[in-house]
Design a binder for these strands. Structure first.
Length: 916
RNA sequence: GGGUGGUUAGCUCAGUUGGUUUAGAGCGUCUGGUUUACACCCAGAAGGUCACAGGUUCGAUUCCUGUACCACCCACCA
């Protein structure tokens, strides 16, 4: 016998082990079945699983289990990401804290630090593995991958090499986002803007007044810009020069007229520019070939150009520069309430400083990608696959967001100055010349070995041309470069990848997994990494493989706290840790709480009561099963044997109604899951189990039970629920599955049987339910104490014999002493209270119990409400336009409503007349 | 500055092509219950002019426009 309450702790680990041992997770590349593939978004190998991962795992596990039960070759490929900057920064902080080493990079050097990070990652990966298992994720562990695996590294280098050969990758001096804290570049998308109040200074600059919030960058400003149409400055011409007293003495300044950089309505309408440290100024300087000068060093301190301020950090220098300008009488005014946005690194949270630095870039506008027989740029391919619906985003509105991002995409800076990651596979010959100096504007040689630069898949010891010594590029690749390959680099056969004589195309062709499982079916992830990752996978995969990476993108919302705030680890009072929740409520309850009631793309709030609610549901299912097993035992039926060959002939109406509504359930759940409507399907199942199966069918079973039907129904329910709550359903399947059956995870998905659909039985059962509900309502309304059994009369226009035949149910469930089913309305008498329902009227004799005045009040209230409703329906039917234009079935429906309401109102009036 | 989403019962949220909905669920509230699984339960009930203003339509919570507030995303206003 089952225990009284479901205990997830006692079951979950055992069941997960059973699944793993059964081989159900393992996909077969040789299978003839239709593939269904999900690449698991690899969690960062930086520590702990959080709720974001839990949502992802719950959703994807539902997709994959459903597909597997439907008989598809389901592959869910798990893995982890080395998460370049994120991991390096975590480990550096850890070393600083635990080992009290101020600068771990300097202290350990490249090789040792990388080894330390690798060690940390190894630990963290194994933690994550066990955490993913706790959620019940049915992924194929035999195919687990890591972005730094040898075969994945190979893919990274191959793609780099090809892009370089295609002249998509180039090196250039560009303005980039420099994070002085992490000492690396970060991409545009890794920047957050924070609003900050800062003083806004206006200074006298020769004859002009210019404003700035960054006076400490102004040392090298020798150009003043204004709009060509600005009347205030029409006496100055483009190219005019003037002498000007500035921070460190006199300078010669030049006037530039430009209509792109200047908004004449802002401030004084003119500004000086700092091309080295400002994106707009850089663009202007490019257009006009202006000189540029570095003011702030990569360590965040002012350089020699700052004169007496050299060596100072920004925050220290700023007020001092202002003070000096003020002393010189050049400070015009200060606006203390100015709000400006400062750029902060997404990872390290350090303040980002624009800097000019030589970096590697991917050109997104060069038309070199062959796509659908045309030569397109990377950008155009990214646009095409969504526009042509090759890839569909759910919810659809994110397509707009995607296009906005792609349309404005600039060349992607892929080099990072950190050590943890894929090293750029480029070597410089120290003798051939130019490679060593690494200067020059955008090196774009077509060959792979010109000018002393070599892109190589293997480490180079000497120059292939002159035999001279070489050095490797010290930079590493943006982490999204490698994760952009994730859907297919994980499907490359690792053994084949060792053979360097094979080209990338050969590897793709010869890898059975790639051939069978790519493109993947659905990419499920949070909408917050649509740009970071989803877009980059599209870019990299279409280029490298000629295929789309996935057919659907399903974007889930972010988990928030009860108050709608972001969950943060630093605040444990509001932050829910999945690993603390699972032992308390079970993984199934946690899964349901994150799926039901949510819609894709929208954030949702999660809190313990919600999870508790679904724990109750799981327990309800458990106890329903317990009841079914008890019924079997009582009847001497073996729950593991019963069920095959159900015949309709000798089944009761109640049983036939149940079987019939089960068919509708199967159809709805199947269709809903195919359309990715997980919340709706979850609610449907919840309501079916609780409100129908438990509250009605099992209650009826207490009077008259058919254990074979009970077991059959429960088996179907457990199948349909399995993708949502795999643990409890698998545990129950162990009790009710036929002898010798496979685990539920491998069971075929139920198919609706049209022969079992029986509308008449469903309607009759509904009648029975209506009678019982009506009596219960009346009893409660008129305070009939539970101990008191009373007689009831039902006036049924049809189905009378049916009701008589099943009156035992009514007696028991409505606490009635006897039930009279009559074909004609019974004569009115004092103490009679009634409920008028569709097709039936239910009457109770409560003489001496009920307050007649109260009956009258209630009837009058009901009449008022009905009259109001009736006048609305009448108005509709009297409206010629409505009659002329509405669909016939709508009119018919309204007429029916009218007739029903009229009949009911007539009965109420009759009753009121008798009462007065 | 541009864009997206939200605004539905006290709270958290569903609502799939405009009419079978006199708008639903869970939690909470109120009343009553140890009824042959379940108090992680059962029965009954209260509670909403679907943010506001227009428009389209015979008909709008649902489509369109505008307004307000909230949230988020994007952007080089010095």
């Amino acid at each position: 016998m089952l225990p009284k309450a479901y205990d997830p702790k006692a079951c979950e680990d055992k069941i997960y082990a059973l699944w793993e041992e059964s081989g159900a997770f393992k996909a077969d590349a040789k299978s003839k079945k239709e593939p269904f593939v999900i690449s698991m978004p690899p969690p960062n190998a930086t520590g702990q699983l959080h709720l974001g991962h839990a949502v992802m795992l719950a959703l994807e596990d539902i997709f994959i289990r459903f597909a597997r039960m439907q008989g598809k070759e389901a592959l869910w490929l798990p893995g982890t990401d080395h998460a370049a900057i994120a991991t390096e920064s975590v480990v550096i902080k850890k070393i600083q804290k635990e080992e009290k080493i101020k600068d771990p990079r300097a202290h350990y050097g490249r090789e040792k630090l990388v080894a330390k990070i690798a060690e940390f990652v190894e630990q963290s990966r194994s933690t994550i593995r066990s955490q993913v298992r706790k959620m019940g994720a049915s992924c194929d562990w035999s195919r687990e991958r890591y972005t730094l695996d040898a075969s994945l590294n190979r893919c990274v280098n191959e793609v780099f090499k090809r892009m370089y050969a295609d002249e998509l990758i180039y090196r250039g001096q560009r303005i980039v986002n420099w994070d002085p804290k992490m000492q690396t570049t970060v991409s545009d998308d890794e920047i957050e803007h924070i609003e900050e109040k800062a003083p806004f200074y206006t200074f006298q600059y020769g004859p002009f007044q210019i404003s700035t919030a960054r006076p400490e960058t102004k040392f090298g400003d020798k150009v003043v810009v204004m709009h060509p149409d600005d009347e205030r400055y029409k006496q100055y011409k483009d190219g005019d020069t003037f002498e000007c007293e500035w921070i460190n003495g006199k300078i010669m300044a030049t006037v530039i007229k430009d209509d792109k950089a200047i908004d004449p309505t802002f401030g004084t309408g003119c500004m000086t520019i700092t091309p080295w440290h400002d994106m707009t100024d850089f663009d202007l300087a490019e257009r006009r070939h202006l000189s540029r000068e570095q003011i702030i060093g990569f360590d965040g301190r002012l350089l020699d150009v700052a004169g007496e301020f050299a060596g100072m950090p920004i925050e220290e220098a700023r007020p001092k520069v202002v003070e000096k300008l003020k002393e010189k009488g050049l400070l015009v005014k200060v606006d203390e309430n100015y709000i400006h946005r400062i750029a902060v690194s997404y990872r390290g949270k350090g303040i980002v400083e624009p800097q000019i630095k030589e970096q590697w870039f991917i050109d997104v506008n060069k038309p070199v990608v062959v796509w659908k027989k045309k030569k397109l740029s990377l950008k155009e391919v990214m646009q095409d696959v969504i526009r042509s619906k090759d890839i569909q985003i759910i919810p659809e509105r994110f397509e707009k967001v995607y296009f906005h991002w792609v349309d404005n995409l600039r060349d992607w800076c892929i080099s990072r100055q950190i050590w943890w990651g894929h090293r750029i596979p480029v070597y410089y010959c120290l003798e051939c010349g130019e490679g060593k100096s690494r200067v020059g504007e955008g090196i774009r040689d077509s060959g792979l070995g010109h000018r002393g630069i070599f892109v190589s898949l293997q480490s180079l010891k000497k120059c292939p041309q002159c035999g001279g010594p070489v050095e490797q590029d010290p930079d590493t690749l943006d982490t999204w470069f490698s994760s952009g390959l994730w859907t297919w680099s994980t499907l490359i056969d690792p053994t084949l990848a060792e053979d360097t004589s094979l080209s990338l195309q050969d590897l793709l062709k010869k890898s059975p997994d790639f051939q069978k499982f790519h493109p993947t079916a659905v990419m499920e992830t949070g909408y917050d990494i649509l740009f970071f990752w989803v877009a980059r996978m599209i870019l990299m995969t279409t280029y490298a493989t000629g295929q789309i990476p996935f057919k659907h993108v399903y974007l889930h919302g972010l988990v928030r706290t009860r108050d709608g705030k972001k969950m943060s680890k630093s605040d444990p009072s509001t932050c829910i840790d999945p690993l603390a929740i699972i032992p308390k409520y079970g993984a199934d309850a946690l899964r349901l709480s994150m799926i039901v009631g949510q819609s894709p793309g929208n954030d949702f709030r999660l809190y313990e009561e919600k999870i508790g609610g679904y724990r109750n549901f799981i327990n309800k299912l458990w106890n329903a099963s317990r009841f079914v097993l008890m019924q079997c035992e009582k009847a001497g039926v073996d729950p593991k044997g019963a069920g095959k060959g159900l015949g309709l002939g000798d089944l009761s109406v109640v049983d036939r109604a149940l079987l019939s509504s089960l068919q509708a359930l199967i159809a709805d759940v199947t269709e809903g899951l195919q359309k990715y409507r997980l919340s709706e399907v979850g609610e449907r199942l919840y309501s079916f189990v609780w409100d129908y199966f438990c509250d009605w069918y099992l209650e009826f079973s207490k009077g008259e039970s058919n254990p074979v039907v009970l077991v059959h129904a429960l088996r179907t329910i457990v199948h349909l629920l399995h993708p949502y709550c795999p643990f409890v359903t698998e545990e129950l399947w162990g009790q009710i599955g036929p002898k010798g059956c496979s685990p539920l995870i491998r069971e075929p998905w139920p198919v609706a049987n049209k022969k079992l659909i029986d509308r008449e039985a469903e309607e009759q059962l509904q009648l029975l339910i209506d009678v019982i509900s009506s009596i219960r309502s009346l009893r409660a309304e008129y305070d009939v104490v539970p101990e008191m059994k009373i007689p009831a009369t039902v006036h049924a226009t049809r189905s009378g014999p049916f009701l008589s035949q099943h009156q035992a149910h009514v007696l028991r469930l409505a606490n009635v002493s006897e039930l009279a089913v009559v074909p004609k309305a019974p004569a009115h008498h004092h103490g009679m209270v009634s409920a008028f329902r569709k097709g039936i009227d239910v009457h109770l004799s409560l003489e001496g119990i009920v307050d007649l005045a109260q009956v009258k009040v209630n009837l009058e209230a009901e009449r008022t409400q009905l009259t109001k409703f009736l006048s609305g329906v009448r108005a509709k039917l009297e409206n010629e336009q409505f009659m002329a234009r509405a669909k016939p079935e709508v009119i018919e429906n309204e007429k029916q409503k009218l007739a029903d309401a009229e009949a009911k109102i007539a009965k109420i009036e009759e009753r009121l007349k008798a009462l007065s």
